[in-house]
């Protein structure tokens, strides 16, 4: 009876640029294998050289949205610390999306690089 709900605008505390970036970082992290929320957060913090200083909590709405879009899937498991944790893994759709986003990002970076290139005399 209900199709996909129309997404409401993301909460205003999170700049839009970061949203796409965060999604991509999550997908990329999961490319290495299933991981739970804390591992993902640590990995992102490490990999972005602490440049993206996001609150770790904002990871969870992102995970929820990605799961909603069926780019990742989740299951409960036991962590290396012997604690129950919710693990996420990449779905085939997620893999595809990651590839597309990586290409798009590369194009964007190239385009911006060209615009910002100092004018040669």
């Amino acid at each position: 009876m209900c199709g996909m709900p129309r997404r409401r605008a993301r909460s205003t505390t999170q700049p839009d640029l970061l949203q796409g970036t965060l999604d991509m970082l999550v997908l990329q992290t999961l490319q290495l294998g299933p991981a739970h929320g804390y591992t993902i957060a640590q990995s992102i913090a490490r990999r972005s050289d602490e440049v993206l200083q996001v609150e770790q909590g904002s990871l969870y709405p992102a995970l929820h949205r990605l799961e909603d879009e069926r780019l990742i899937a989740s299951f409960w498991g036991t962590s290396e610390n012997n604690r129950r944790a919710r693990y996420y893994r990449l779905t085939p759709a997620g893999k595809r999306r990651l590839g597309e986003e990586t290409t798009r990002w590369a194009q964007l970076v190239r385009a911006i690089g060209q615009v910002l290139r100092p004018v040669e005399d």
């Binding site: 209900c2 739970h36 929320g37 804390y38 591992t39 957060a41 770790q56 909590g57 969870y60 929820h64 962590s79 610390n81 604690r83 129950r84 944790a85 919710r86």
Partner: peptide
């Protein structure tokens, strides 16, 4: 959509796990 409360409880458990791992 119908089981929002159950979902919320699950999310709370997940966040607790996150914090516990960090504390560890």
């Amino acid at each position: 959509y119908v089981r929002r409360a159950a979902w919320d409880a699950e999310r709370a458990a997940e966040i607790d796990a996150h914090l516990a791992h960090h504390v560890d």
